[in-house]
């Protein structure tokens, strides 16, 4: 089974964005693997450990995004591809989905795994758009994935519990955080990753041009939200409970 796992590089894993003067996210610094995508990598490694096959980590971003793929190498994935091109700066979700789908199609796949939503973009729609471009079925919010006889069986998180979903391969599946604990790269994994090559692709390599990634949205303003004022912070002491109870009283909720 050939698994492609989508890995996004983020600059600050706490989700604090850095904006450039043109309001675009400043992604020039060395990135790191989005913690959300560690779950996809882990799921890919577990699935192929059971049934054989290879795992390819795929990312789109500037050169610094190669760090995300190298971290996936250290966790144990077999191959890695970084799509990078000056035309992709500030790419929106439509362009990103189109580019990732083209790269996945070129690599060949039985299963694509992705995170539900990234730490700094959190649209949560990227993977289904990729599935639509690839014209394959998809299932999102998987908290458990297994594959048997070319069919994936998924426990899908819902608002009120979970559903069991069956999805024939090839398919795209997004996994939630908390699905499994991602492994930590071992020293052996880190050493082995040094011999793996990060393959680089441009838009032209994927048969795409500037028109294919033309922006459909543009940031016009960024403004600070009104800050909270008048908050007080006290040390816990004998009267902390009384102060809180008074506040609840004033809010007329007790």
């Amino acid at each position: 089974m050939n698994v492609v796992v989508l890995v996004k590089s983020v600059i600050d894993p706490s989700g604090q964005p850095r904006l450039g003067p043109d309001f675009l996210m400043d992604r020039s610094a060395e990135g790191t693997l989005d913690p959300t995508d560690e779950f996809g990598v882990e799921a890919a490694l577990q699935l192929t450990a059971e049934s054989g096959g290879t795992v390819t980590a795929l990312s789109m971003g500037p050169d610094g995004a190669g760090a995300a793929v190298r971290r996936a190498f250290a966790m144990g994935v077999d191959a890695g591809v970084l799509v990078t091109d000056p035309l992709l700066r500030g790419a929106d979700t439509l362009a990103t989905a189109r580019v990732l789908a083209a790269a996945i199609a070129q690599a060949g796949f039985d299963l694509v795994l992705a995170g539900v939503e990234s730490t700094d973009g959190y649209t949560g729609t990227l993977a289904v758009a990729v599935a639509e471009f690839l014209d394959v079925p998809s299932a999102t919010f998987a908290r458990k994935v297994s594959v048997a006889d070319g069919v994936a069986r998924i426990e899908r998180q819902t608002e009120s519990g979970y559903d069991v979903i069956e999805c024939p391969l090839p398919a795209v599946i997004t996994v939630t955080a908390g699905s499994t604990e991602p492994r930590y790269p071992t020293l052996k994994g880190i050493m082995a990753s040094k011999s793996k090559t990060l393959e680089s692709r441009t838009l032209a390599d994927l048969g795409l041009d500037a028109a294919a990634v033309a922006a459909t949205q543009r940031v016009s303003h960024v403004t600070p939200a009104p800050a909270k004022s008048g908050g007080v912070v006290i040390e816990a002491g004998d009267d902390a409970a009384v102060r809180i109870a008074d506040a609840l009283d004033q809010a007329k909720v007790i």
Binding site: A215, R218, V219, S220, H221, V222, T223, P224, A225, A227
Partner: peptide, 9 residues
């Protein structure tokens, strides 16, 4: 903490 206004095209 930040509002982002976006033009849709």
């Amino acid at each position: 903490t930040l509002f982002v206004d976006v033009v849709l095209e």
